[in-house]
Design a protein around this nucleic acid. Structure first.
Ligand SMILES: [Zn+2]
Ligand SMILES: [Zn+2]
Length: 254
DNA sequence: TGTTCCGGTTCG
DNA sequence: CGAACCGGAACA
């Protein structure tokens, strides 16, 4: 083989390689564009079917405690750690023609009602342990010095009759929820990394001495802290991978 | 209106 | 690079 011939072969090979590279690049670019376009619309939302989706707000994790509903400042804005969906689904783009399926029923969380019956009574119990008072949830534990409570009900007696046991149970229920709130909030404040701004603002306004009451609920987790840790990492891992892996069925814990 | 909480951005 | 923040659409 002459040197000229060898050089020609090399040239041909190089040209072919370039062509192949260009083609591959085009494919990759197209894929990237498609992926980017996909990412733009279509968020993921909770499946509504997994264990966590069917849980109620625990009211104790850092994410719950952050919620205004629980007296938090709403800085983190994340789902309850115990409720973080384990199988996020692509949001179905709009409603398909005609009557849609039963996907609607399992969208939003259970209201998480306060006790409707005094503990020990017939209607109490059966998995109705968790707290989370969403009804008439007062604002922050101590909203800015503002009190406007005037009884203006001159119409006489009201027909609203709540059994004394229930009223007491509700109050206790709520007190317990709020008590844990401040503790967890404070704990998180000293334990967290990074940012300062949001919570700094909180510190000078809402934070105050918390009465430690400790919620006496029987949670499914034995060691609250350990499980919380587990869920936090799961949460983040899921979040990170959700770009490429919309379905993480492997994480289902049925 | 208030709540949920994803996902992108920014901070450490 | 992971943790924290927060804009803001979807929902109730
Ligand atoms: Zn929670
Ligand atoms: Zn789910």
């Amino acid at each position: 083989m002459s040197e000229v011939e060898a050089a020609q072969d090399e040239g041909v090979a190089a040209a072919a390689a370039v062509a192949a590279a260009v083609a591959a690049a085009e494919v990759a670019a197209a894929a990237a564009a498609a992926a980017a376009a996909e990412k733009a619309r279509s968020r993921l939302s909770r499946c509504g079917a997994c264990n966590n989706c069917n849980r109620r707000d625990c009211g104790l994790c850092v994410n719950c405690v952050d919620k205004p509903k629980f007296g938090g400042p709403g800085i983190k804005k994340q789902a309850c750690i115990a409720r973080k969906c384990l199988n996020m689904q692509a949001r179905e783009e709009s409603a398909e023609g005609g009557g849609d399926d039963a996907a609607q029923a399992r969208k939003r969380p259970k209201p998480a009602q306060p006790p409707t019956a005094a503990p020990g009574s017939a209607a109490a119990g059966d998995g109705e342990r968790a707290q989370a008072d969403a009804v008439g949830a007062a604002k922050a534990p101590r909203s800015h010095s503002d009190e406007n409570n005037s009884e203006s009900n001159a119409a006489g007696m009201d027909t609203d009759e709540i059994a004394p046991g229930v009223a007491a149970a509700r109050k206790e229920h709520k007190d317990a929820t709020w008590a844990g709130n401040t503790d967890v909030l404070l704990d998180y404040l000293v334990r967290r990394k990074g940012r300062t701004e949001g919570w700094k603002r909180l510190r000078e306004t809402d934070l105050e001495e918390g009465r430690a009451l400790d919620v006496g609920g029987d949670w499914p987790w034995a060691d609250k802290t350990a499980l919380e840790e587990e869920f936090i990492s799961m949460n983040d891992r899921h979040r990170r991978e959700s770009n490429t892996a919309p379905n993480l069925n492997a994480l289902l814990v049925h």
